[in-house]
Write a protein that binds this DNA or RNA. Sequence first.
DNA 1: ATGGCCAATTTTATTGGA
Length: 255
Amino acid sequence: MKVATWNINSVRAREERVLAWLENYQPDVLCLQELKGTDDVFPAEATNALGYHCAVFGQPTYNGVAILSKTPPEDVTRTFGDGVEDSHARFIAATINGVHILNGYFPNGGDIDSDKYVYKLAWLERLHAYLDALDVNEPVLLCGDFNIAPSKLDTANADKREGNVLFNPTVRGWFEKTLERGFTDTFRHLYPEEEQYSWWDYRNLSFPKNTGMRIDHILVTEPLKERLQDVWIDRDERKGKKPSDHVPVMATFAD
DNA sequence: ATGGCCAATTTTATTGGA
């Protein structure tokens, strides 16, 4: 079973690339973030034609997440279901082949002294509350654009970036706490020393200079960790015309 | 060729991304 996550930065701008990528790599599940559009602009027919079901949670202009899968998604839920008023479409979950798939577009946080950062921290706490209600003895996969670099290995210019909304003790602590409650960072587990990134800023020649960050993650509970065979960050997807600023990350599990 | 922001909307500026 292959499960991938990809922040595509607009489904309309990235439709061709997404369809080509699906066709090339045939993931069983693809979790998308930052659709930047309503449900009706999602290319459902084109994805169906490639053999994928889609569960979409869009909104105008901002955010938006979706889960594509070869087998039908069951028990699809949008939002954390905690009753909190939230206008952002940032979370969708489904059960696919018995695996609980959780897909999040975590808030960026703006500046460290902004309301957006307050929102980010509150959202992270809500997600922990959601995870509290899960059984980590079951196969659970939490993926998406976390907007968190877990360690110094996961960001270029770590000293310069220390303290920003993506890389500071508070968000690293949140990530660490998630691992302590039974999740494994699949990439770091298989590649303890690797410095690979999943996002590069469009500005400042970030990609040629490789001043990126690893902020897109696939975390799994023990039953899936035991089946984990590989994790791959598709760096090449950042090349060429009209790339997203993020690239896909894909984990492979034994069937 | 891996190249000096990009995408959506409020559209010839502004907002958000990270």
